[in-house]
Structure formats: C-alpha cells, structure tokens
Design a protein around this nucleic acid. Structure first.
Length: 221
DNA sequence: GAATAGATTGTCT
DNA sequence: GACAATCTATTCT
C-alpha cells in the first residue's frame, strides 16, 4: 500500500495579496486541488493569465465594471472567481491584490497529478495531455462550476485549494506571453500577462520560439 | 499540422 | 438581442 501523496502547504492569503502578475507567475508550478467527498483531484498549474482591472481592458472588471458576476473580484484575495464562457465552458480564477482592486488570475492548464483516471473519465477518455489543457477543460476535469463561485481557497477545509509546489519537483521555467482570446483589448492584448511552463505538453497552446527568447527566466523551485 | 465553423447559455445592454 | 478570458469536429494542406 503506497502512502497517499501529500500536497504541499496551502498557499496563504498574503501570497495572493500581491500584484496580480507577482501572483500569476509563481502559480506556475503550484498545485490546484479539489476534494469531492473521499476523492482527491489535483494537478500542477502550468499556465496562468493575469487580469488587472480597472485599467486592463481585457478584464471583466475593465473600467471598474461591478456587477453580480464581477463582485467577488472587489473583495479580499484568495477567493474563487468562476464564470461561463461561450455558453458551455467554465473558467476558474483566483482573486488577488487588496480589497477594492478587481484583479484575478485565470488558471488555464494543469498537469494531472492525483485522481488522473477520474479526471480523464470526465473528459471523455481523451489523452492525458488534453485532460486539463484549457480553462474549460480543467474545470470539467475537476468538476468546478458555478457552485465554486466566491469560495475562500485559503480557508481550512475548503474543497478547492492551492498548494505550494511539490518540494522534490524540479524548478520550472516560466515564460510570459500575450494572453489568449483578448484581441478586443487594444494594447492590453499584446502585454505579456500569460505565464506558462513552455516545456509542458499540457498547455492550451504551444509557445513560439520568438517569445521564448525574449521573456524567459528561471524561477526558484 | 493548421485553419475554420458551429455549438450553446449566462450576463449585460 | 448581442456577445463572449472556449472546445470540438471537420476540412483542408
């Protein structure tokens, strides 16, 4: 009997209270976990995007827009912002910064780590590299939906949680690129606010060689 | 492998 | 009524 894999310590509120890019970058390599009754599902984050309302025209909180949907972004950091895109797909974000700053990090892709077969089954038996390689795909794999809206990811016992990188995992390369699907956002569309591990086969999109050369940097594991 | 079209529904005007 | 921080299948090379 193999001992269950133990996740790293849960990330604390102060981790999320920094600038949104200072959170989005080190989240690459961190672990997103969900507990469903007895089952544990988890994956290593390999792709994130930072959204910095109100000035960021790509953010739902652009221009200080404050509605029932965006409300949680105006609250304290470390809470889940979940929304629907294109009718059928859910997307999972973490609120960052200080209360009143409507910032959030979109988690776009995971490397399945725990509960892989359960997640794969939910995704129609697709190859593992497609199990959580996109915002909608990872929500489907983890069973994240509207009921996760506003959950406090830092609270002890919360079914959704974020954890520090596994201690024995090798350091990951983190590359910044423009964000996906925000062409309507003017100059904000080209800003390097998407953070990926370019070596991962689990990304929603591969990273081009050009952006790799200009923006890559090493991060402590 | 790359490009394209269609699906489908919550949210906001 | 229009649109969207996407996904999938299909149709090309």
């Amino acid at each position: 009997m193999v001992a269950p894999l133990s996740l790293g310590p849960r990330l604390t509120r102060s981790f999320f209270e920094r600038d949104v890019c200072e959170v989005a970058s080190p989240l690459v390599g961190a672990v997103l976990a969900r507990r469903e009754g007895g089952a544990l599902l988890a994956g290593v984050i390999v792709e994130t995007e930072a959204y910095r309302g109100p000035e960021d025209l790509a953010a739902h909180s652009a221009g200080g827009r404050r509605t029932a949907r965006t409300e949680v972004m105006y609250g304290p950091a470390g809470h889940a912002y979940v929304f629907v895109v294109y009718g059928r797909n859910w997307a999972f974000n973490v609120v960052t910064g200080r209360p009143g700053e409507p910032h959030a990090v979109l988690v776009r892709a995971l490397e399945p780590l725990v509960g892989v077969e359960l997640m794969r089954g939910r995704r129609g038996g697709v190859p593992e590299r497609l199990v959580a390689s996109g915002p909608g795909r990872l929500c489907q794999a983890l069973g994240v939906g509207r009921e996760s809206y506003g959950h406090d990811l830092c609270a002890e016992g919360s079914p959704l949680s974020l954890h520090a990188p596994l201690t024995h995992a090798p350091a990951r390369l983190v590359v910044a690129t423009p964000r996906i699907g925000v062409d309507y956002a003017g100059e904000w569309a080209s800003r390097p606010m998407r953070f990926v591990d370019p070596a991962s086969p689990h990304l929603s999109r591969r990273v081009g060689a050009a952006s790799r050369a200009t923006t890559e940097r090493r991060r402590q594991g």
